[in-house]
Design a binder for these strands. Structure first.
Lengths: 174, 174
DNA sequence: CTAACCATGTAAATAGTTACATGATTAA
DNA sequence: TTAATCATGTAACTATTTACATGGTTAG
């Protein structure tokens, strides 16, 4: 994961490890945390696999500038083209970089993802129907208030995602 | 994390590891994935620390029934009382178990969490103002469409959370 | 009788955090 | 001159996934 975020950040130009972390924080920092303890080893791995090159500045600041290679770009683009899968919010990182992706693939992947979301909504709604019937037969419903509220959260969450996806699929807003 | 989810599930009664996983899937499965590879070692650790006891059924099914001890309950409740912190959706797991928590602490923690959410919203809105000004000066705004959309996602997400929290703080809905 | 489900577990790999360690530069 | 920021890195730890391995029970 961190490798692709790093490659994605390097797509806009060469920079130091420190800068990669700073820009990551400023852009996708709300839902993706990057620590130096994972970033620097990742950069080393990326250099070893020739997806990235390292050049040392011999000026006073002893920093290293990383650039993405053509191989690295190809590797990144391959990852970007793959279908969005919902775990760990990786999809949001990918969508963040979707300006690099061609429109047909972008649309295709977003629609496929939206179908997953729609499926989740249908699933929760089905459970909700069963649960609300079961709750009716109980005297003390308040005993399950928080449990049921978390189920509602799921519904709110996926509905929000669905609305958002609908908009961006049609390139609305901005 | 898995220890507390496990303890939480055992709060409603004794059951097998298999059942713990099944119930976890059925309830918080949308945002928390539990695998046997983490569950069984966790159960072993919980038994070692006397938070849970294990009894073997000597019938045909060779299963083990786990029960939460008083010490385990105290340990779980201590965790539950702690402030909600937003990383990794742990807060949703906690809120799911909030029917076990006393109302004042529940309300206090939810309000504190809502303030974090409000802070995030303010932060994104501030960034949005700067970004939209910067975008105005560019000819090709569409180049940043997806990046900006992900920022909007953040706003939608936190607004959804804020609305949801507002409702459950006042014990509305159900 | 066989497929789906019940049931438990380990080993290796993956991924990442946290704490530590160091030192230069810049703005107040 | 001192606090903040720039800058890089390692080691130990924590947590979890994935794949493998095994075998019993139940419903159609």
């Amino acid at each position: 994961m961190i490798e692709f975020v790093t490659l994605g950040m390097l797509m806009q130009g060469k920079m130091s490890g420190y800068d990669i972390k700073k820009i990551t924080e400023q852009t996708v920092g709300i839902f993706y945390k990057m620590s130096y303890g994972s970033l620097y080893p990742a950069l080393k791995r990326l250099v070893n696999s020739t997806f990235v090159t390292e050049e040392e500045t011999n000026d006073s600041k002893n920093k290293k500038i990383y650039s993405i290679t053509e191989l690295g770009q190809a590797h990144f683009m391959q990852w970007l083209r793959e279908p969005l899968h919902s775990n760990k919010r990786e999809y949001l990182i990918k969508i963040f970089f979707y300006d690099y992706l061609d429109e047909p693939t972008r649309k295709q992947n977003l629609i496929a993802y939206q179908q997953h979301v729609a499926h989740h909504i249908a699933q929760i709604e089905a459970v909700q129907t069963i649960v609300s019937k079961e709750l009716e037969q109980l005297e003390d419903k308040s005993q399950y208030y928080n449990r049921v509220s978390v189920m509602h959260y799921g519904l709110h969450f996926y509905n929000m995602e669905n609305e958002w996806l609908k908009k961006i699929i049609d390139n609305e807003g901005l």
